[in-house]
Amino acid sequence: MTWDWEFAFEVFPDIISAIGITIGATVAAYFISLTLGLVLTLLRRSSFKPLSLLIAGVIEFIRMTPPLVQLFFVYFAFDMSPFVTGAIVLGVHYATYVSEVYRSGIEAVPSSQWEASKALNFSRAQTWQKVVLPQAIPPVIPMLGNYLIVLFKETPLLSGIYVLEMLAVAQQIGSDTYRFLEPVTIVGFLFLVLSYPSALFIRYLEKRSGKLPGSAEKGVKT
């Protein structure tokens, strides 16, 4: 089989029209990851031991089981639309990764900052809001941005629960026409075109801000 440009041009509009679903799912899942990730980090640092242990256990469990299986679990257990299911599951899965990023940022804030806040009679909430988080988050922004790209590349999994994102559309075309070469290559190309420049930008930010000590290993995919 050789590459057929005519066929490629014919299927391209169908595939590109699904990019909205892909990007929509990515952004929704990313929003969930960023918020839930911070909540998980704070809960894990709770001084109430049973709570912090429970959160740590839940995070480990989610991190160590495949997102695809989690998708199936939620899809069949709850009565939600495929898109909502997909965004929530990917969002929660990567929230556990994002919480590691926040944690590394928070741990890099020197303990003297906490002591100074105490000396100034700041409440705990004030210390977090006004002292710790403003110093913890900016250095980890590149690593947080990286998870946007990771999530983007995870969205093809949603085709497993019948979300019509790009790869699902390509597969549909492939099984209808018995030509997979063009549709699958186009999807791969679109992923590369969107993710590679973003990755370069993130690496540039990373280089500029300088790496955090001890934070490089935990973010598995970079």
Partner: peptide, 20 residues
Amino acid sequence: FRGTSLLVQMFFFAFVFPSL
């Protein structure tokens, strides 16, 4: 291989590669 998605690559090896 980092820039395209794993599932896309799997489809490529499973469905496209045999036809090439």
